[in-house]
């Protein structure tokens, strides 16, 4: 049986803005990736590993489900 399609969205851009307009570079440095990776995640072109997702959430002091949300299509 085929897996139903889903969509993952993120609120990283919003969370960065709320965190005193943190730059992509700042976030990248804090979680240990390149700025290009943060950009790709924000644009929904790359889905991070669970570990990186937790690191991002922890950086903003929120839960994982406040950064990433899953929608059934």
């Amino acid at each position: 049986m085929a897996r139903p399609a889903g969509r993952i969205e993120n609120r990283i851009r919003r969370l960065r803005f709320d965190a005193g307009e943190m730059t992509q570079k700042d976030l990248a440095d804090r979680v240990g990736v390149t700025r290009q990776t943060v950009l790709a995640i924000e644009n929904g072109k790359y889905f991070p590993t669970l570990e990186l997702a937790f690191r991002i959430a922890r950086t903003f002091g929120v839960g994982l489900d406040e950064v990433f949300t899953f929608h059934d299509d």
């Binding site: 990736v33 390149t34 700025r35 990776t37 790709a40 790359y46 991070p48 590993t49």
Partner: peptide
């Protein structure tokens, strides 16, 4: 250039 290699690079 950023010399870091992360999980996206490995992917």
């Amino acid at each position: 250039t950023d010399d870091r290699r992360d999980e996206r690079d490995r992917d």
